[in-house]
Design a protein around this nucleic acid. Structure first.
Lengths: 148, 148
DNA sequence: ATGACTGCAAAGCCTTTGCACGCAA
DNA sequence: TTGCGTGCAAAGGCTTTGCAGTCAT
C-alpha cells in the first residue's frame, strides 16, 4: 500500500504549477483542494456544483482552465465517464492508479486495481514499440446492483 | 487467425437489424457498407464526409442514428478518439477485437491485439464481480514517428 | 506597473431531437 | 395504408474562447 496522501497531491500540484511559471490564484487553489478530496473521477460540472454548494463558487471557465493545466502537467487524468462528458481524477505521485468498471445502466463508477493487468499493459506497449506514458482501461457492463 | 471477413460483418448487421424489427432503409444500408470497409475506428463526421465524397451522401442525423442502433445491437464499439469526439468500429462476430495506442502528438491510432491483456481483463472482471460485456483499453503516449 | 488570473457571456463543436416527407412492408 | 426511415434545421450539452476587470508579483 502506498504512503502517499491526498495533501501530498495538492502539495505536488502547487509545486508543479509554480515550477511551470504559473502564479498563485484563488480559483485554481480552490479547484486543487477540492480535487485532493475526491475518491474517484469527477466531472467539471459536478465540481462546479460541489464548490457552489460549499460557497466556494468558482467560474466555470476557471474550472475548465485549471483542469486542463493540471492534466497538461500530468497531475490529473482525464477519462470519459459518459458519452461526451469527461471526468478527472488525481494522478498519484507514486504512480499508483486504478481503473474503472462503468455500469451501463446506472452509470456508477466502480474503481479497481490489478497488478497483472498493469503488467500486461506494460508488456504490450513494449512489444509494439509504443512509448506509452499512460493508459485507460474501462470495463463496460452491468454492476451488481443493476444485474438482478 | 480469424476467418471472418468484412462482408460477414455487413451480413450479420443486416440480419441483426432485421431480427430486431428494423426495416431496410437506404441510408442505414449505405452506412453499414461503409463501416464494413473501414480498417479502424471512424468518426461520424468523417464517415459523413467520406460518403459525400463518394456521392453517397447521407444525412448527418441518419448517420448518428445508424451508429447508435448498431452500437446498441453490439455490432459496433464506440471509442473516444479525441476529446469529445467518438469513433466507431466493427465488433467482429467471432469476438476478435483489438485496442488502440493513440499518439498524443499526431493523434494517430495504432491498433494492437494481445491475448494476455485479454486474459487479464477477463480475470479482473471476474475477481471484482462485474458482469462486463466489453472493455476499452487505450495506451496514451508518443508514436514512433513523433518520438524522435 | 506588468501581466497572469478570474468570471461572465458568447461562441464552438459534436451530437441529439423535432418535424414533415418518402418509402418499405 | 401504416408507421418506420430519412434529411433538414434547430436545439442540447459540454467545453472553449473573448474580453474587461482584478490580483499576484
Amino acid at each position: 500500500m502506498s504512503t502517499a496522501t491526498r495533501s501530498d497531491w495538492a502539495e505536488e500540484a502547487r509545486a508543479a504549477l509554480s515550477g511551470a511559471g504559473y502564479r498563485r490564484g484563488g480559483a485554481r487553489a480552490t479547484v486543487i483542494d477540492a480535487l485532493a478530496e475526491q475518491d474517484c473521477a469527477i466531472t467539471a460540472l459536478d465540481l462546479e456544483e460541489e464548490l457552489r454548494r460549499r460557497d466556494e463558487g468558482v467560474g466555470r471557465a476557471s474550472i475548465y482552465r485549471a483542469l486542463e493545466q493540471l492534466e497538461q502537467l500530468g497531475l490529473l487524468q482525464r477519462i470519459e465517464v459518459c458519452r461526451g462528458t469527461a471526468g478527472y481524477e488525481r494522478v498519484e505521485p507514486d504512480g499508483e492508479h486504478h481503473h474503472h468498471a462503468i455500469c451501463r445502466d446506472c452509470g456508477r463508477l466502480i474503481p479497481f486495481e490489478d497488478r497483472s493487468l498493469e503488467r500486461a499493459l506494460a508488456k504490450v506497449a513494449d512489444r509494439i514499440g509504443f512509448d506509452a506514458s499512460g493508459h485507460d482501461v474501462v470495463l463496460r457492463g452491468l454492476c451488481d446492483r443493476c444485474e438482478r
